[in-house]
Amino acid sequence: MQDTSTEPVQGTTLTKPTLAFKGQGSELFSIQIVNIALMLVTLGLYYPWAKAKNLQYIYRKTELADSPFTFHGTGKEMFIGFIKGLGIMAVLVSIFMYGFMHGDNSVKFLCFAAYFLGLLALIPLAIHGMLRYRTSRTSWRGIHMGYRGTLGSMYKVYLTGFFLSVITLGFYGFWFTTNLRKEILSNTRFGNAKFRFIADGSDLLLVHIKGYFLTLLTLGIYSFWYMKDLINFNINNTLIEQDGKYSRLDSSLTGGKYFKLAVGNLLIMVFTLGLGYAWVVTRTMAAIVNNCEIIGDFNPDALAQTEAEYKNATFEDMADMLDIGII
């Protein structure tokens, strides 16, 4: 564990780029109760507002150098996205259902093909849109994050990865995952700082091979270390470039800590009949963020605003619907 003690914000000394998560399950729970109650009353339409609140809380409790992040997204913005997303999904599902109900096999085939191609075309769009929106709505000390990737290159990375994965029966998936992460991180800005992801598919493959065989050998016990390795793989291979100098994220999450987290989360979910979900979220965030530090010369006081204002939330919820866990 690293030192997360808070110093008063006063003082002119250079702040250390410590990362910390200060959220509490009880606080998040109280937010979720209000959210769920309002969603029930509005038959689910409150969902985007609920999601915004949830994110606002999580961001507000995640700190870098003792200052919290801010999520600026609003329920209204995401509601518009939610409705558009729902509309697109409704069209696709209708096509699917039409094919399903149709007796003619060629019509069936056409409809199913349209449905899957539609989904396939939608995913890169959704990822791109979500990244644009999410980063633009994230700030820290007023400095906004931003996403500079183009839709074209996202399609290229995604479709290439997808087809090569299909052709190689999934084997290319490791490169697909890392290439997608490279594309995303190398286009993400944090003020005038940039990110880079330096691992390759072969590195990820090694993590999986090691994890897979050791899990088999230890009758599953290693699976916690396997999961830890996967999380650390994503964190430790992320670089931050600031004024030509590189810093690196470093995770000190251990298999033991992950074991405690996973088993604890499972017990909480089982014994509270799912009501303890808020604690699961805060415990997980704490385990990941509090074990993460920035190694190098990253100077949190020297970030400059580089983003222009951005408004569009269509694909935030699209990504949600398609269940793409990107970040």
Binding site: V9, Y57, R60, S67, G142, I143, H144, E307
Partner: peptide
């Protein structure tokens, strides 16, 4: 919302100014 020992306030349109006050 959701302030703790530190209260954060933001002001104006993009880019927002902000203050953080500890206790």
């Amino acid at each position: 919302e959701f302030n703790d020992d530190t209260t954060v306030l933001e002001y104006g349109s993009f880019p927002r100014q902000s203050i953080a006050v500890f206790e």
